[in-house]
Amino acid sequence: NLYFQGLKYMVPGARVTRGLDWKWRDQDGSPQGEGTVTGELHNGWIDVTWDAGGSNSYRMGAEGKFDLKLAP
């Protein structure tokens, strides 16, 4: 699974964008943008601060869902 392989790169400072299971509307800005991981992966959740200004926790394994992917 590509998403599980990418988890080791989901570290503080990593750049991310919305992924396969995104369901959080425009939390990442409008139009959709990139963000920066600000915390360690914990119980399948990870913290992100978006360039647009907001921050929140997103699923990276929790509930079998992956809200994020590494930015290109």
Rank of each mutant, 00 (worst) to 15 (best):
M10F: 15
R25Y: 12
S30C: 15
N56A: 14
M10I: 11
F4C: 15
N1H: 14
A52Y: 12
Q32H: 12
N43Y: 10
G39Y: 02
Q32G: 14
M10N: 01
R25P: 09
A71H: 07
R15T: 02
P31H: 07
W24V: 06
H42D: 10
F66R: 03
P12Q: 09
G35Y: 01
G35I: 02
G19E: 04
V48Y: 00
A14V: 10
G53N: 03
G61I: 02
S55Q: 11
L68Q: 01
G29Y: 05
G33L: 07
S55N: 10
R59Y: 03
A71T: 11
L68F: 02
D51P: 00
Q27G: 08
G39W: 03
K69L: 13
G35C: 02
T49W: 08
R25C: 15
V37H: 01
Y9K: 09
W22R: 03
G29N: 06
A52H: 14
V37N: 00
T17N: 06
L7I: 11
K65S: 09
G29E: 06
D21P: 02
G53C: 06
D21M: 03
W50S: 00
W45G: 00
A71P: 04
G13M: 05
D28M: 04
P72R: 12
Y9M: 09
Q5Y: 11
L70Y: 10
G6H: 15
Y3V: 14
G54D: 08
G53V: 02
D51Q: 03
H42F: 11
D28Q: 05
D26I: 06
P31V: 09
A62K: 04
N43K: 10
G64N: 14
G29K: 04
D21S: 05
L41D: 03
L2F: 11
A62H: 10
N43G: 10
E34G: 11
H42Y: 13
V11W: 08
M60W: 08
A62T: 04
G53I: 01
T38V: 12
D28R: 03
L68A: 02
G6Q: 15
A52N: 12
N43R: 10
T38G: 05
Q27K: 05
K69P: 00
R15E: 00
V16K: 00
M60F: 09
N43D: 12
G13V: 03
G44W: 06
Y9V: 08
G6K: 12
G13E: 03
G64P: 00
A52W: 12
W45R: 03
R25I: 10
P31Q: 08
D67Q: 02
A52D: 09
N1E: 15
R15A: 02
L68K: 00
T49S: 10
W45L: 05
G19I: 07
W50T: 01
L70D: 03
L70A: 07
P12W: 09
R25K: 14
L70Q: 06
V16S: 00
L7M: 13
L2C: 15
T36M: 08
D47R: 14
W50G: 00
A62M: 04
Q5D: 15
L68H: 01
S30F: 12
E63F: 10
L70S: 04
S55E: 11
M60H: 05
E40G: 11
K8L: 11
D28I: 05
G44F: 04
V16R: 00
Q32K: 11
D67R: 00
Q5I: 10
T17E: 10
W50R: 00
W24T: 07
K23Q: 13
G29T: 06
E34L: 14
T49H: 10
W45S: 00
L7S: 10
N56H: 13
E63A: 09
M60S: 02
I46E: 00
E40N: 13
R15F: 03
T17C: 15
W22F: 06
F66A: 04
G29H: 06
Y58S: 02
G53A: 04
G54S: 10
E63V: 04
A52M: 11
D21N: 08
V37Q: 01
P12D: 08
L68S: 01
N1I: 11
V16P: 01
G29Q: 06
V37D: 01
L2R: 14
E40T: 13
G29S: 06
G19R: 07
Y3D: 15
Q27M: 06
T17Y: 06
A71G: 07
K65L: 04
E40I: 13
L70H: 07
W24E: 06
L2W: 11
Q5L: 10
G61K: 00
D28A: 05
R18L: 09
S57V: 10
A62D: 05
N43I: 05
R18F: 08
V11D: 04
K69F: 13
F66S: 03
E63N: 10
D28T: 05
G64C: 15
G61L: 02
Y3S: 15
M60G: 02
G35L: 02
G35T: 01
Q32L: 10
N1M: 09
Q5R: 09
L70N: 04
K8G: 12
D28F: 04
Q5H: 13
L7R: 08
L2K: 15
G61N: 03
K65F: 08
T49G: 05
L2N: 15
P72F: 13
G44V: 03
